[in-house]
Design a protein around this nucleic acid. Structure first.
Lengths: 194, 194
DNA sequence: TGATGTTCTTGATAAATGTCAATTGTTTTT
DNA sequence: AAAAACAATTGACATTTATCAAGAACATCA
C-alpha cells in the first residue's frame, strides 16, 4: 500500500527515493475492518493518518447520545484528531471505518522529523494544511448561510466521490440535519426533476 | 501601536530586539474608521493583518444580498482572506471595521521572509494556525450539533469580550440565525433567570 | 436461504426558526 | 436639540426541520 502514498506525494511535489525510504521506514501500516475504530473518544492520539484505501468518518457524540459527523476521509485523505494530537489531551472524536480500510500511521514525533529532513514534504504538508483550513472556513460559511437542501446539493456537487460511498444517515449527520429530513429533501428534489 | 505587537509576540515566544526591528520595518500601519472597509469582495488581498486596536468583522454576501458573518477580530487577533491570499484570486469576503481600529499589515511575501529569518516567529505562527484550525473544527461541530440557543450561550461563554462589543444582529448573523430569533432567545433566557 | 440487523422512507404532529410589518429604543449627524 | 439613520423588540403567521412511530427495502452473515 505504500505505492499509494508514494503516488500521492509525487502528485504534489517531488522527493528523492532516499527521502521516501526514510518516510517509509517511519510509516506504520494499519488495517481496519468495516465498523472498527481507529480512535475512540477518551483515547490518546499520537498519529497523522493517511488513507491508502477505504473510507472513514470522524464524529462526536453529544449529551443525548447523538452522533455528529464532522468529516469523512477516503483514499489520499488525512484524518485524525488534531486537537488531541496537539494538546496531548484525550480525544473528543471517534473515528471508525465505513469500509475495510488500509491506513498509514506516522507518529507526530516522526512526522516532525520528516518535515525537518525533507523540506519538500514539509512544504506539501503546509499546503495541505492551508487548503483544509480554507475548506473548513467554507464549511462554516455554508453551515450558517444555506438551507439544508442547498447544503446537501453542494455536498453532492463538491464531494460526489464521498456521497456515493457513505450511508445517507451519515450524510444527514454531516450536514447537521435528521435522516428523515434528508430523505424528504431527496424525495422532493426527485419529484421536481420529473 | 507597534508595542502592542511586540507585547503580543513576547507573550507567545521570545525574539531578539534585532529580529523585532526587522519585523517592524516590514509592518504597514493601517488606521480604519468605523464602517470603513479593510477588504471588499472582488479585491485582491495580499496581507496578513494584525489588530492592535479596535474590532472588525469578516462576512460574505449571499445571492439574496444577506450578510453572513464568518468571524470577528479584536486586539491581538489576525484577520484577512486566507483563501484569496493563498490563491491570488479575488476575495470572497468583506472585512470592515466595527470600531475605529489600528492594524498592522504585512504582505505575504514579507511574512514569509520573516518566518524564514526568525524561526521563533515561524513557530509562533504555526502554533496560531494550528489553534485556529482546531477552533474552526469546533465551530463546525457546534454549527451542526447544537440549537441556536446553545450556540448563543456558548458564544457568550467563549467570547464574552467580543459579545460585549458587537451589535446583536451581527452575532445573529455569526450564529446563522435571524436577528429576531436571537432577540427572542435572549428574552426567553432572561425570563428563565427571574 | 432464512434470520437479523441496519438503513431508508413515509405519515402525523410538534417544535424551532424565518419572514414581514409595526413600534420602540438608541446612536449619529447636522 | 431635532432629525435621520440604525438597532432591537414584538406580534402574527409561514416555513423549515425535528421527533416519534411504523413499515419497507436492503445488506450481512451464519
Amino acid at each position: 500500500m505504500l505505492e499509494v502514498f508514494r503516488d500521492y506525494i509525487n502528485s504534489k511535489t517531488s522527493i528523492t527515493d532516499a527521502a521516501f525510504e526514510v518516510i517509509k521506514s517511519l510509516c506504520i501500516v494499519k488495517k481496519l475492518r468495516k465498523k472498527q475504530y481507529l480512535l475512540q473518544e477518551g483515547d490518546t492520539w499520537k498519529y497523522h493518518a493517511f488513507i491508502c484505501k477505504g473510507c472513514l468518518r470522524a464524529y462526536r457524540i453529544d449529551d443525548k447520545g447523538v452522533e455528529h459527523t464532522t468529516k469523512f476521509a477516503i483514499e489520499n485523505h488525512w484524518t485524525g484528531d488534531r486537537a488531541a494530537l496537539l494538546s496531548g489531551e484525550p480525544a473528543s472524536y471517534n473515528i471508525d471505518a465505513i469500509e475495510d480500510s488500509v491506513l498509514l500511521l506516522i507518529t507526530n514525533e516522526n512526522f516532525i522529523t520528516i518535515c525537518k529532513e525533507v523540506p519538500a514534504f514539509n512544504e506539501m504538508i503546509n499546503t495541505i494544511l492551508n487548503k483544509s483550513f480554507v475548506a473548513n472556513e467554507n464549511r462554516i460559511h455554508a453551515a450558517i448561510s444555506y438551507s439544508a437542501e442547498e447544503n446537501y446539493q453542494n455536498f453532492l456537487r463538491n464531494s460526489p466521490d464521498i456521497a456515493n460511498r457513505v450511508p445517507q444517515h451519515m450524510i444527514a449527520s454531516y450536514l447537521g440535519i435528521s435522516p428523515e429530513t434528508l430523505s424528504r429533501i431527496r424525495n422532493q428534489a426527485a419529484k421536481r426533476q420529473s
